[in-house]
Design a binder for these strands. Sequence first.
RNA 1: UGGGGUGUCGCCAAGUGGCUAAGGCAACGGGUUUUGAUCCCGUCAUUCGGAGGUUCGAGUCCUCCCACCCCAGCCA
Length: 558
Amino acid sequence: MDDGKPQNFIQQIIRQDLEEGVVSRVVTRFPPEPNGYLHIGHAKSICLNFGLAEQFDGVCNLRFDDTNPEREEDEYVRAIQQDVRWLGYQWHGEVRFASDYFDQFYAWAVLLIEQGKAYVCELSAEQTREYRGTLTEPGRNSPYRDRPVEESLVLLEKMRDGEIEEGKMVLRAKIDMASPNINLRDPVLYRIKRRPHHRTGDKWNIYPSYDFSHGQEDAIEGVTHSICTLEFEDHRPLYEWFIENLPVPGKPRQYEFGRLNLNYTVTSKRKLKQLVDERHVDGWDDPRMPTISGLRRRGVTPAAIRNFCDSLAVAKTDGTVDMAQFEHFIRDDLNANAHRAMCVLDPLKVVLSNVAEGETEMLTAPAHPNRDDLGTRQLPFTREIYIDRADFSDDTALSRKKFKRLVLGDYVRLRAAYVIRADDLVRDGEGNIVEIQASIVPGTVGEDPPEGIKPRGVIHWVSATENVECEVRLYDRLFLEPSPGAGGRNFLDSVNPDSLVIKTGCKGEIGLAETERDRHYQFEREGYFYPDSRYSDAGRPVFNQTIGLKDNWAKGGN
RNA sequence: UGGGGUGUCGCCAAGUGGCUAAGGCAACGGGUUUUGAUCCCGUCAUUCGGAGGUUCGAGUCCUCCCACCCCAGCCA
């Protein structure tokens, strides 16, 4: 707990509650609605809730807020659990469901009616809206507000038993139609939805609203600190109203923090679902999606996500974090742990005239420049190799500072191998360079070249005869604009048409043939890559680019 | 024009009336380097949305003003 970092306001509150004995053990919860996949924004909430429990020796529950059968599905329940576990968190005890408490909620609804604090209202949805008033004008009481308790009791039963049509009646709390806080203008407690629920089947024809559920769920589970996002701030008085007016077994307190917004992406389940449904992406786990499953498939590690979330302040400000901040933590973890490998994305053949045909020299390179524990890899060196097209130029006037690669007539170091010189080139009928003729400087493996030979730089390469053919998928941000959909425009208009570039015919070093599914790589000088879980074949791996290397040189524009 | 919130460097932020306004990201210099990566060093707010006021002393307290976000689902 005492890691020197400043305490956020929730940590301060918890510490004080513990010191003053207000609570003896911290209980938090992560309460997703199973109506979509988890995304990076949820990760902040997950890290916060599970993190708080960890820091204060408490526990954190995973509870599905499944009070609306219209859009909730088991598929989401499973995916969400997988994502939370993948992030490295274990919830306390069994998974909880709001639907586990439906009987209790119903009993409490009856109690409120009996106490004259709730009533069945027969206003239509439109009428209810009219009666509610506006932001500046108070609402009016429903004509059903003072109906006899008995009548409401009977009607609620009929609602429950499926005898009333959807939309004809709701159960409402009797609070204050003139409250400046609209949430207190007789909010709906139960609405009729005559459809099966993913867990309770067709047992219920009515379902509790969020407001009538959340606080009670927390109370039942002994949650002490119920942390939610800013937009629920207005609901807190209602949350407390239920806690105070119902014989609940606990007194949870609600605290709100600012949700995570990231630029150049969207974190709204509705928009993400739309991207999936309209096939702008290849499913919820498309590597371009900011979903946990998308990030996982892309090759982002749980540690990177957790470190990023820990770097985020928990406060009440509503800002937008730079994607660069997230990218920093992705690179930070991958740089420390990813195995290095060489892969030529755009192959150009180089024939080394002074290397014997058919001869293979096995070279050894470390799997990581400063982590011996990761071992070494074998690199077959042969007469014909591939380098990347972008690493060669026939413009001999290019300065050494501007182009640290292979230039006709000059020297370059092949990573973990020889220094070579480009002697000549071969063009096809259209003038395109199709082959480089070069020669190695003998004795330069692991050794500096003789006086006078100054390689311009170091480039990656792969044997032309002993390599693994692979596909590489390069990704760019999904949106062209920092805030997609800003200014009332359609967020889909700024979808980046070039966010996925598929490179086939890439040549990877032989070790990539036996890629372990779960191994993160750095393709040297290119970026970080991760085998795609869907399209990789045993013989032909497909690599997703997790993120490129930081490239200060490219930025200069030269 | 009702209610609830928020405003500290390009971005995220610490700061809880008293040493020279933390830190991270980004950016920009320089060094190391068989990855134009990593790593290392350095630069980067006389000023805290604005204006008044209280105080020996204010980003921190008071007053007024301004800007932005959320709320009128039988969504969560």
